[in-house]
Simulated assay, not measured.
Amino acid sequence: MCGRYIITDTASDLAAMFEVEHEGSNLPEPSWNIKPTEQIPIVLESAKQEPAVRRLESARWSLIPSFATEMASSFPTFNARSESAAEKPTFKKSVASRRALVPATGYYEWHTVGAKKTPYFVHSDDGMPLAFAGLYSWWRNPALAEDDPARWVLSATILTADAQGPLAAIHDRIPVALPEETWDQWLDPHTVGDQAFVDAAVAASRSQAETLRFYEVAPIVGNGPELIEPVAGDSARSDTM
């Protein structure tokens, strides 16, 4: 799963990296400790204009389906299992045409043995940002007036898949990190997504997952670059625990 991650690039850096045509307002600053329900930058393509416009927007990290009656959910929605996302009412419409990329410098995962949880930082082997496969949704808050600018809430989730290779030694789930050659197809709002489409994206992500490295870090407290410093004696690795 992916319950904490970091993005150290600025909005302008991300806009250039993902060839964004429109930057939204109130985009979040870089963070080394992003938690569910906080605002995150996402890349999406809007079909309201032709041709579709690629946008960088700020979204709530925990998807609110359009049919929800309130923002809070009885179950976590910051991650969506790729194996069943197209079948779940919460995510089905988003799989069909509201797909996003979630930029990340890396993410944290905890290896659990008994009562002990050891945090690790997972990142690309070349230090370049990752692009997680995401889904987004627009939700209208029924408690707010029609003329309230805050009545529409953009939210997003990150798809996860079963872990393979060395990463499976830390946790049994990983975020789906898409290779660059799949970004356009994943974002295309005119391509109707279904479970087969998601499965193909996960298959394409396996080569990207093989490039990930990880190392142990200190307990994740606060927010700053010191959080991703390796503990004494550890360094980036991918083949041992």
Rank of each mutant, 00 (worst) to 15 (best):
M1W: 05
M1F: 01
G3D: 08
I6V: 14
I7T: 12
T8F: 05
T10Q: 07
D13R: 05
L14V: 02
F18Y: 15
G24R: 05
S25V: 05
L27N: 00
P30A: 14
W32P: 11
N33V: 10
I34D: 06
K35I: 15
K35D: 13
T37I: 13
P41L: 10
I42H: 00
V43Y: 03
L44G: 03
S46C: 09
S46H: 06
K48A: 08
K48H: 08
K48V: 04
V53F: 03
R54N: 10
R55K: 15
E57D: 01
R60T: 09
R60E: 09
W61I: 00
W61P: 01
F67Y: 13
M71F: 08
M71D: 02
M71G: 06
A72T: 12
F75K: 14
A80H: 08
A80L: 03
S82T: 05
E83H: 06
S84T: 15
A86T: 02
T90I: 05
S94Q: 01
S94H: 00
A96G: 06
S97T: 07
S97E: 12
R98A: 09
R98E: 02
R99T: 06
R99H: 12
P103Y: 12
P103N: 11
T105A: 02
Y108P: 05
E109K: 08
E109Y: 02
H111N: 13
G114E: 13
A115S: 13
A115T: 14
A115E: 12
K116L: 15
K116E: 15
K117P: 04
P119S: 10
F121N: 04
V122F: 02
V122D: 00
V122Y: 03
H123N: 00
H123V: 02
H123Q: 12
D126V: 00
A131L: 11
F132W: 05
G134M: 03
G134I: 02
G134F: 09
Y136F: 10
Y136N: 05
D147N: 15
D147G: 10
A150V: 04
R151E: 06
W152I: 08
V153F: 10
L154F: 11
A156L: 00
T157I: 07
I158S: 00
I158T: 01
I158P: 00
T160H: 06
T160Q: 07
D162R: 14
A163L: 08
A163C: 01
Q164I: 14
G165N: 02
G165C: 08
L167S: 11
A168D: 15
A169M: 15
A169E: 11
I170D: 05
H171S: 07
V176R: 12
P179V: 09
P179T: 02
E180L: 13
P189F: 11
P189G: 11
H190M: 08
D194P: 04
D194L: 01
F197Y: 14
V198Q: 01
A200G: 07
A201C: 13
V202N: 03
V202Q: 08
V202F: 02
S205F: 06
S205D: 04
S207K: 10
A209S: 15
A209W: 12
Y215K: 12
A218V: 01
P219H: 10
G222I: 06
E226R: 13
E226D: 13
L227F: 13
I228C: 03
I228N: 10
I228A: 10
V231D: 07
V231P: 02
A232F: 11
D234H: 11
S235G: 06
S235Y: 09
T240W: 03
M241T: 14
